[in-house]
């Protein structure tokens, strides 16, 4: 019963976001363009000796990029929405409802994200297929990859939520999100797998939670093995629990000092 309400919240937000399907498609057109540019780049650089890292073919690299960009552009933009709700005091109105605010936000995030991801997966697959052809994928592998992507997006939600909830104490959270997106670019391995990095940077990326959002699930798509999958999902779960607890703590502290305009 408890979970059902969140599933329904996600479903209704999915339906509401279809009103903005034009925006979603526009975002996906941008995604297709980026993918096309990188495909051309790797076609030029790929054949040169020493450019591709060990274990990655040109085809795999294109599919990796399709996956990492799909996640990056598929995650719903909740950052400014939550920060604005905190700053304006509008977050307070959610307190009068019989649900958890974090649960409500996670559900609405998933309603929006699932629509974006559906479109991105179709477009990404179409571009990658057209550019370099198929990679070997079984339904079971796809299912496991989907699970890793779902956890990656949930992990992203809690990271963004922690930053957004800092608006209880900080006037302008904009710089945090700017830094977060850039860190995700680099330590997450958005454009190139972290295997390409110099050893020290690769190690830093490997221990950070950011690689679990983009690199780890994207690599699973092109180079799947059960052990890596298990390790990835385990680490994602650990970070979801840590950041979920942190977000819940920040929320509980913030609500106590809530200042609502009006009166």
């Amino acid at each position: 019963m408890g979970l059902a309400k969140y599933v329904h919240i996600a479903r209704i937000n999915f339906a509401a976001k279809t009103a903005y399907i034009g925006d979603v498609l526009l975002g996906s057109a941008f995604y297709a363009l980026i993918l096309y540019i990188f495909v051309q780049l790797w076609k030029v650089l790929g054949p040169s000796p020493g450019v591709l890292p060990e274990g990655f073919s040109q085809k795999e690299l294109v599919w990796y990029l399709a996956a990492s960009e799909a996640i990056m552009l598929g995650k719903a933009p909740i950052a400014s929405e939550v920060s604005d709700e905190v700053k304006s005091g509008a977050i307070a109105y959610a307190l009068g409802r019989p649900y958890s605010y974090l649960g409500f936000k996670l559900a609405t995030y998933w309603g929006d994200t699932s629509l974006r991801m559906m479109v991105n997966v179709v477009i990404g697959a179409a571009v990658a297929l057209a550019a370099v052809g198929a990679i070997p994928l079984s339904p079971a592998r796809l299912l496991m990859w989907g699970a890793a992507v779902a956890l990656a997006l949930t992990l992203n939600f809690f990271m963004v939520m922690c930053l957004s909830l800092s608006a209880f104490w900080v006037e302008d959270t904009g710089p945090f999100f700017w830094i977060y997106s850039k860190v995700l670019f680099v330590l997450g391995g958005l454009f190139v797998p972290i295997d390409f990095y110099p050893e020290s940077l690769r190690r830093a990326a490997a221990v950070s939670p950011f690689n679990l959002v983009l690199y780890a699930p994207s690599k699973l798509l092109v180079a799947f093995d059960a052990a890596t999958f298990g390790q990835t999902v385990m680490m994602q779960l650990v970070w979801v629990v840590i950041l979920g607890a942190l977000a819940a703590g920040l929320y509980a502290m913030g609500v106590r000092r809530l200042n609502v305009n009006g009166g």
Partner: peptide, 10 residues
């Protein structure tokens, strides 16, 4: 919204 509230209020 009514459908959603029915779920929210169990």
């Amino acid at each position: 919204t009514f459908e959603l509230l029915a779920h929210v209020y169990d």
